[in-house]
Amino acid sequence: MRLKALAAALIAWGSSALAFAQDAGAETAAQSRSTQFVAVRGPQTEHVPGGALLIIAYGIVFVLLLLYVLRLFRLQAKTDETLAQLGERIDRADRAGADGAAEAKRAERG
């Protein structure tokens, strides 16, 4: 009986100690945030390279603008090509029409 009581007491103590330990480790919402700002010691250093980000940003701006201007040139070239093909077709049709008319005249005379 005493042995059982001793075991129960040990289990109760152990579990309460474990719970206490968990409580001690847990942070409140306020504690999980930064609570103070500490001044830098020595020379100021930056972990995120601002200069590199700036150069990349400006580089992207000019690359995108250049690519769009190139796209406009390509579109213009495509339209010019379509118009040139149309011109060729009209010229061929004109020549064929003129040849056909001359042949018809010759046939009439003959």
């Binding site: 930056e46 995120v48 601002g50 200069g51 980000l53 700036l54 940003a57 400006y58």
Partner: peptide, 8 residues
């Protein structure tokens, strides 16, 4: 506060 990157 932001340094040179603000020029973006």
């Amino acid at each position: 506060q932001m340094g040179i990157v603000q020029k973006i």
